[in-house]
């Protein structure tokens, strides 16, 4: 761990002045503890949601709220731990398409909700 940190610092030092923002930021642990813990936590979140629903543990509205919170936690975990969100070669370019992805995803979900309301003047 300390070795890899040392490497990062030295690579940043060797950058030309003014170009520090281009320094690569990569995780380089000797053993992927972060990923293993992330995997365990993602399983915990999944099975927590499943058990809550199977056992009808709460009132439906509360249940929905809780599993949505669990889902958001899951999404954050996946992005942060497995999707290299914190790593980059230079500026974090990946945030731009990610923002677009969120825009499209929530747009589609929102419009789907609107469609499935069946606010119809016909039927």
């Amino acid at each position: 761990m300390s070795d890899s940190l040392q490497q990062h610092e030295s690579s940043e030092e060797s950058m030309e002045p003014g170009l520090e923002f281009l320094a690569p930021k990569f995780e380089s642990e000797a053993f992927p503890w972060t990923q293993i813990m992330g995997y365990v936590f993602s399983l915990v979140l999944t099975f927590a949601a499943l058990l809550l629903v199977i056992n009808h543990a709460m009132a439906p509205t509360l249940l929905l709220a809780v599993i949505i919170v669990l889902a958001l936690g899951q999404a954050g975990l996946q992005l942060g731990v497995f999707m290299h969100l914190r790593e980059s070669r230079g500026p974090a370019w990946q945030l731009l398409p990610l923002a677009l992805a969120f825009f499209i995803a929530f747009g589609l979900i929102g419009v789907s909700y609107w469609i499935m309301l069946f606010k119809t003047g016909v039927s």
Partner: peptide
Amino acid sequence: AYGTWVHHFFTMGAGPSV
């Protein structure tokens, strides 16, 4: 292309505005 999918099921009755 992402904003037109309901035209495959207009007759579902989602409502005039949709």
